[in-house]
Design a protein around this nucleic acid. Sequence first.
DNA 1: ATTCTGACA
DNA 2: TGTCAGGA
Length: 136
Amino acid sequence: MADDLRRNMALFPIGIVMKLTDLTARQIRYYEQHELIVPARTSGNQRLFSFNDVERLLEIKSLIEKGVNIAGIKQVMNPVSKESEEATVVSEQSEVKRRELSDTQLHRLLKQQLMEKRPGKASMIQGQLSRFYNKN
DNA sequence: ATTCTGACA
DNA sequence: TGTCAGGA
């Protein structure tokens, strides 16, 4: 359990994260603007990512590929409370619950989006149901 | 050599 | 999202 201490320590610069996640610096910075990730900064204002940040980015990437946009991801993903170090204090159970909840929320969100889908207006979810079922 | 922010022919 | 500028 002193594990996430390591998972949360800021280690790599954006360049490495780009290779690790196959995301562009543009995307990574964009997701940060939308508070999907909160990487640490060096004294020189350079971003430093932790393993947790990379994991989140991979999750985000996965959702993006499923056709979920930022708005949808914000609702499905656990907001980065305090500094990811906070989540470190919660029990392993709540960790599991959060995942289950996320899935439920995704399902609800998808249904919700499909319903209120009005012509002309861009929907939050662009993918179809099929995409949702063969997830991960 | 890398990364950062802001902006858009 | 890509990409270029101008600075650190």
